[in-house]
Design a protein around this nucleic acid. Structure first.
Length: 424
RNA sequence: GGAGAAGUGGCCGAGCUGGCUGAAGGCGCACGCCUGCUAAGCGUGUAUAGGGGAAACUCUAUCGGGGGUUCAAAUCCCCCCUUCUCCGCCA
């Protein structure tokens, strides 16, 4: 949510931001609503002031056994007028709030301007594409041949976009997750959290999934509960409605959770393998940061995610999402794209964003600065560290051998009982 | 799932036979004074959001959330949520 004051005082900036994002939202609509709201408030508050003033007067005269019928009559009218005005005001405020809640965050100054994902600049590469003396296979071929993935039975149990991992694949996935968590806890200062995987509407609204993106979520029937699409949601909202001490910042939280996505509108995309699933595991990092340091924190968080890929020896590149591709709540986002030799493509494996105070305002997360009376909104950052399923994909494709076996990256061997090669 | 109790400001805790309570009192915290040494005392201040105002300031709303009764609700009524106790069930 944007600052109401910004909307009022600098609509030009908001208009510009929306244009960069390719949004069709009209700022003038808001200005009209806001004017209407102010007019209504002025009238209704004046009447309420009168009501509050006359109330004690009625009590006083009653106690003196004086006649109060004239006041009662007048106040009856006032009450009625207040009621209708309050109703009108509530409507305007709801509209205004709905409007505000639908406006995306303002991109950071250095977020590149562009129309689509094709305009995202590559910032850097790490490592090199591995050389194969044969045609590398895609992960789903390797996984199925080695008996690790069972898509047919997953389809039987549930439907499309699910997988059953068995044996080495299940253990490798668990190994990856534990390796990631351990790295973030021991080397990057994060605290591990196991949050609820089901959250309510309010929580989903705090991070920006609702009200605009309900169709991307799984909602539990007959409730206002949703399955989390990412641990960003429960982690960022952990301190919603609270005021943190400045000394608690930055608050570094890390969780390994399942993520559930309806993938509405992605029919035909990535239909094979485990790139795009309705359910996948992810290690997520969240930082509730001091506004003065949130952009340093974004670099640090991105570096933490990169560290995982580096330890696994996986070639990747870092891109900066442009204004046309950046997420609703984010001001600036770096994506990590890992090289998949089977697909011969770089694929997103992590996304690290600084949302500035956009979510902090929505979820009402503040902190008390030492040297100021005024409480401020925290800046929130979130980043995958990493998407576990996709990391498994990357390991399989990058570490495959001609005979179809997979070398276990050294960093994972302690988590795999010392296993060096997966042969099925 | 059944039966009861409770939810007030940073915390504790009054108020709950409707108006004089944005809310006593205490604690904590901040600043000042006194004193002078790791204490006590005194004074002042100590919520959030919105409207008006250059500002001082002023008005409105908020006593778990929502709705209702009333000229007027922390106080009465209804629904929901959460917590605690007891019973049942269960990992």
């Amino acid at each position: 949510m944007l600052d109401l004051k910004l909307m009022q005082n600098n609509p030009e900036k908001v208009r510009e931001s929306l244009k960069k994002r390719g949004s069709s939202i009209d700022v003038q609509e808001f200005a009209t609503l806001d004017e209407k709201r102010k007019t209504l408030i002025a009238e209704v508050e004046q009447l309420k002031a009168e009501r509050n003033k006359v109330g004690p007067e009625i009590a006083k005269r009653k106690r003196a056994r004086e006649d109060v019928s004239d006041l009662l009559e007048r106040m009856g009218q006032v009450a009625e007028r207040i009621k209708t005005l309050d109703a009108e005001l509530a409507e305007v405020q709801a509209e205004e709030k709905e409007w505000l809640m639908a406006v995306p965050n303002i991109p950071a100054e250095d977020t590149p301007v562009g129309k689509s994902e094709d305009d995202n600049p590559v910032l850097r590469y790490w490592g090199e594409k591995p050389e194969f003396g044969f045609a590398p296979k895609e992960h789903w071929e390797l996984g199925v041949e080695l008996g690790g993935f069972d898509f047919e039975r997953a389809a039987k149990l549930t439907g499309s976009r699910f997988v059953v991992s068995k044996g080495w694949a299940a253990r490798l996935e668990r190994a990856l997750a534990t390796f990631m968590l351990d790295t973030h806890l021991e080397e990057h200062g994060y605290s591990e959290v196991i949050p609820p995987f089901i959250v309510n509407k309010n929580t989903m609204t705090g991070t920006g999934q609702l009200p605009k993106f309900e169709e991307d979520l799984f909602k539990l029937r007959d409730t206002e509960y949703y399955l989390i699409p990412t641990a960003e949601v429960p982690l960022t909202n952990l301190y919603s409605g609270e005021v943190l001490d400045e000394s608690q910042l930055p608050m570094l939280l890390c969780a390994h959770t399942p993520c559930f996505r309806s993938e509405a509108g992605s029919y035909g995309k990535d239909t094979k393998g485990l790139i795009r699933m309705h359910q996948f595991m992810k290690v997520e990092m969240v930082n509730l940061a001091h506004p003065d340091h949130s952009y340093e924190a974004l670099e640090t968080m991105t570096a933490a995610a990169e560290k995982i890929l580096q330890k696994l020896g996986l070639h990747y590149r870092v891109i900066s999402l442009c204004t046309g591709d950046i997420g609703f709540s984010a001001a600036k986002t770096y994506d990590l794209e890992v090289w998949l030799p089977g697909q011969e493509k770089y694929r997103e494996i992590s996304s690290c964003s600084n949302c500035e105070d956009f979510q902090g305002r929505r979820a009402n997360i503040k902190f008390q600065p030492k040297d100021s009376k005024k409480k401020e909104f925290v800046h929130t950052l979130n980043g995958s560290g990493l998407a576990v399923g996709r990391t498994l994909v990357a390991v399989l494709e990058n570490y495959q051998q001609e005979d179809g076996s997979i070398i276990v990256p050294e960093a994972l061997r302690p988590y795999m009982g010392g296993l060096e090669v997966i042969k099925g």
